[in-house]
Design a protein around this nucleic acid. Sequence first.
DNA 1: ATGAAAGCGCTAACAC
DNA 2: GTGTTAGCGCTTTCAT
Lengths: 355, 355
Amino acid sequence: MAKRVTMEMIARACDTSIGTVDRALNNRKGINAETRQRIMGKAEELGYRPNIMASALSRNTDARIAFIYPTNAHAFFSCITKGIQKAEAELSRYGIEIDYINTDPHDPASQLKLLEELDFDGYDAFAINPLSSKCSAFVDAIADSGKPVALFNNDLPASRRLFYLGTDNSQCGRIAGEIMGLIMQGEGAVTVLGNFVHIMPFYERYEGFCEVIHDYYPNIDIFPSSDCRYEQDLVEKNIDKLLASDAKKFGIFSTGYSCTEMACRSVEARGRKDITLVGCDVSDEIAEAVKKGWCKALLYQDPFQQGYQTAQLLARNLLEGWVPEHSTLSIETRTVLRQNTVNYSGGILRRELFI
Amino acid sequence: MAKRVTMEMIARACDTSIGTVDRALNNRKGINAETRQRIMGKAEELGYRPNIMASALSRNTDARIAFIYPTNAHAFFSCITKGIQKAEAELSRYGIEIDYINTDPHDPASQLKLLEELDFDGYDAFAINPLSSKCSAFVDAIADSGKPVALFNNDLPASRRLFYLGTDNSQCGRIAGEIMGLIMQGEGAVTVLGNFVHIMPFYERYEGFCEVIHDYYPNIDIFPSSDCRYEQDLVEKNIDKLLASDAKKFGIFSTGYSCTEMACRSVEARGRKDITLVGCDVSDEIAEAVKKGWCKALLYQDPFQQGYQTAQLLARNLLEGWVPEHSTLSIETRTVLRQNTVNYSGGILRRELFI
DNA sequence: ATGAAAGCGCTAACAC
DNA sequence: GTGTTAGCGCTTTCAT
């Protein structure tokens, strides 16, 4: 092992005690400002890097991370949870504990209420999937108290988060546009389904999609579509409108899991494999539709990774003071086609086989 | 922190000393067989799990992993190295060191020679990308000595490796077939390029590809192609033959980075964007061809992950005795289209932005 | 074959 | 504000 620089070496070099070095290095109170400077300088000079194992061993008490995010029955959220749990299992050895604090995905207000009532002192770090821009105030308040807060799945760029981790929604839409254009060979009419009013990322996907169709496949017409909320009827109406046009080829880009499920049902009920359906997210029902050919491709946000990586990175910040170079961290959107739906089970990339 | 079971607790419960518990738990010599049994039983009963931090701290000396794999100038190999290096940086804190032992990718004999001469005693674990089935003997010899050996990128299923980690080549071919079928709308003629004689995985990709074309797109003809080795001329000849047919649409599946580069050049030189070219791996040149539309899609093996994960998992085995549930671990093949080539730079998924 | 004890590098509690 | 010291859970060496 390369000779490791220890706190004791710094103490000797500065002609002081290891206790004072500890105070300086860890920003504790009760230390003379210039002593701190001197020690920090020496540590830098010697290339000191804390031994996190000794640290965790000595601390002998867990750090707690609060994971605040919505859940419901859909696989998307349970995959996030599984990812966090995997990280938790790995991190428990390093004295990190995680609390799961869930609210309803469709009720931003309940998340805000929860944040208002939460005892922040009980936690050392926070990971939040914010449902509303009003969460910013809480993020900033926590950050002010010196504790790290990570955002995932949905960003609040104006907040003082340590980092945001998620997929690039615009690129998701762009890839969908590319697949659509390739399969439709640059001609026909398409429509985009989504719950645009309620869910911000859907709009970003829509924009990315339109950009690509516009730039690379200008002969494909984009039919304006009205919001689908969570209603099959509205989906049918939009598809009816699309099919009523005199185009030769038809395409549908569905920007979220719920409308993807509805679109799959609709295309299957109509028995129209000639329609190029491209969707988002994976569930067992959606995967089945892809296997049978009703849906041609899916864009996968890898929710498991979103949970796992957020937890891991936050732990790294806690354990070794790591900070990201970029405050926005992305998970690459994966493309799922018929031949790799087998990798997905319960809407999740099968982690018993895949790393 | 949940009350952790320590060696001291086991020692007390067994009315023996912590030193003896250490001997039992870590399979050291100099301990009575039944004492060992008793201690192991108690440890199991109490749910003992070693504290790897205390262990590493106390050991105060590094474990060494030998990484034996081929390299040349191509991005594919440098990405593997970058992945290993990332793992190394993370693992150095846990007393793990890595040695990089490289040979020429096209010279299996030199790798064998190296294995013959290597001092196995200098290492605690081994990660090997084997170039020949003759490596099996070394894998087994090392395994017999009780040290873990992981294989990556290329498997030797008959060997006594701890695990194999890589992509599913058959699925890579299947996905390529799917993309080809979708874009060609199920009709036309395709050929498959590769270096089949020398490189085993290429053949697996070929088979997967043919399966899908056969099962789902039976109206696409597959033209037999002769081996391309590393020669542009041979690629041109194969493509000439393909184009000489009376098919309306043409497709090319290229099974490795070198023939993908050559195929991109050929398609561009011919100015034939109508040819559906699907390739494997990413380099700057290949990415450029995708951006410009000469190549429609790439299948990416994520060499970075292959290196990174192999190192991480081997370390986990060393530090905490982890063993995989399945001895074959896969990295999911990624699909790269024009809209996500920007994520790749120097043939690698940009890790400064992407997790 | 077994036990005792000295650390590994750090934190936290206490003394000055 | 600073120094001292007792552990954290384990490995390793030295007695027995």
